[in-house]
Every structure is written in structure tokens, then in C-alpha cells.
Simulated assay, not measured.
Amino acid sequence: MTDHDGMASGPDFRDDQTMQDRVLPLRGIHNFRDYGGYAARGGRLRRGVLWRSGQHCDASPEDLDVVHELGLGTVFDLRGDSERAANPCLRHQDFAGEVLFHPGETASEHGRAVHEEAARGVVTAEDARKAMLRLYEQLAYREVLVGTFRLYLKTLATRDAPSLLHCLAGKDRTGVAAAIVHSVLGVHHDDIVADYLLTNTAGDAEARIAAGARHVRSGFGRSMDDAAVRVLMGVEAAFLDRAFKSMTERHGSVEGYARDMLGLTPEMLAGLEARLVA
């Protein structure tokens, strides 16, 4: 159901079991899940064509087999060049899709993910929360990330094969990108936030947090307390709200941001709707 503005009129797919059914329980790839299926403007997002995850450098052969069966035609890699060099993603031997990214660095700390960059100077959970809010306020305006977001929208609007969107942890850069697509397609805000927050429970969240803790502590010392690590390695609705607020203040809406910064045209939007909404 949609309202008069074309936005889905109420939250959808919100019970815990249905949300967890989106998740592929893989051994070495964290946060791998389907972000389709939500009520949208004019119908419902297709299932099995929009996938998101963390990086694949630790994928098991069994993981690669499962991912291969999805028939991915495009992989959008939101990491920076140094991240890709340090942690090259494993692919199935028969992978024939295309990996797309804008060259350069998406984090200001060479070789690090954006949440690791935010960890500098963090000791407490409150420090971490403030750092993540600062990060999200300007995340959607980083030049290299904007370049990959542009490729992401253009490709989704013109290709029919399933796609995968990922960064290192699949939560911040990936979370904002997925939320932009949800928003321009009229997914209800409550569902956008619910999908974003699924990072906190998708798959083996404790393993993901433990892996992240090693990275942030090795780079920024061991004075950071456990609660701070959990904030850095998780997501909160306030983070995404801060990103959306930044877009809205500068462009009037998330859709305005997509138009002004990512080159979303009416023709591209029609392509997105034709390929992603049933």
C-alpha cells in the first residue's frame, strides 16, 4: 500500500523472524543479506536481486558456492583502493560478473574502513557515538564514495541481473547506499531503518564484532573500552538519521541528494522502478 506521495504507507516485514530470513548464514562473509522485498512506490521490491554484505576476503569455498548460486551480475565495492589491496575479495572460480568502484580512497585513514577511521581518539561508548555521528554527517559527500554511488544507481537502473553491494563490514557505506535506493523507490522510512539496523543481529554478529575489535584496537591503541567497540562495530538509527538530515538540509530531501549529487534523472528512476519493483 502507498500513500498519496507515493511512499509506502506503513512499515512492512518488521517481525524478527521475517527479518532474519533475509540473512544468508555464511561462515566467512559477515552481514550477507537480501535488502529487497519491502513495500515500495507502485509495488514491492523484488527479492533475490538486491544483496548486501561485508567483504569477502575470508570467504570459505562453501560460502563462494552459495554466493555463486545467486547469479550476481555486478558487485559494487565501496571500499577504497588500499582496502582492496590489503584485503582482496575471494570470488568463485566461475564468477563472470563485473566489479565496479570509483578509484581512490573512501576513508581518510589510508587502508582503513570509515568506522575504523572514526575510532581515532575514542575511549568510551559516548566518544564512539559522537564520532560515528560526525562521520555520518559527511559520509555521503566523500568524492570517491559519491563516484561509486553514481555507478551504483546508474547500473541498477540499466542491468537486470542480481547485484551485491559491500564495503568492509557492510554497515556504514553499504548501509547509506542501500538506504538511498530504498528512499528513492518509496520504501517507508521505518522499513529503511529496520533494514539498516539488521546489521546488529545478522548472522554471527559476535564474530563480526570480535573481528572489528582487532582492527580498531590495533590501529588506535587498547584504551578503548568494550562498549565503545560495540558502538563502532554496530549501527544506530541516529547514525542513519544524521546522514539523511545532512542530505535534506543541503538538497531538500534524500531524493534531492540523489538528483543533485548522484545524477539521478527521471529516466534512471523509471529504470530502477522497472527492474526492482514488482
Score class of each variant (00 low, 15 high):
Tyr141Cys: 10
Tyr141Ser: 12
Arg142Asn: 11
Glu143Gly: 14
Val144His: 09
Val144Trp: 09
Val144Pro: 07
Leu145Lys: 01
Leu145Glu: 02
Val146Gly: 07
Val146Phe: 11
Gly147His: 10
Thr148Asn: 09
Phe149Met: 13
Phe149Gly: 02
Leu151Phe: 13
Tyr152Phe: 15
Leu153Ile: 12
Lys154Pro: 08
Lys154Asp: 15
Leu156Ile: 06
Leu156Asp: 06
Thr158Met: 02
Arg159Lys: 14
Arg159Leu: 04
Ala161Val: 07
Ala161Asn: 02
Ser163Arg: 05
Lys171Leu: 10
Lys171Val: 01
Arg173Tyr: 03
Arg173Gln: 08
Gly175Asp: 04
Val176Cys: 08
Ala177Phe: 06
Ala178Val: 07
Ala179Glu: 00
Ala179Tyr: 04
Ile180Thr: 08
Ile180Ala: 03
Val181Gln: 00
Val181Met: 04
Val181Ile: 11
Ser183Cys: 06
Leu185Trp: 02
Gly186Pro: 07
Val187Ile: 03
His188Asp: 08
His188Lys: 01
His188Thr: 01
His189Thr: 10
His189Tyr: 15
Asp191Asn: 10
Asp191Tyr: 05
Ala194Thr: 00
Thr199His: 08
Thr199Trp: 02
Thr199Met: 07
Asn200Arg: 11
Thr201Trp: 05
Gly203Val: 10
Gly203Asp: 03
Asp204His: 12
Ala207His: 12
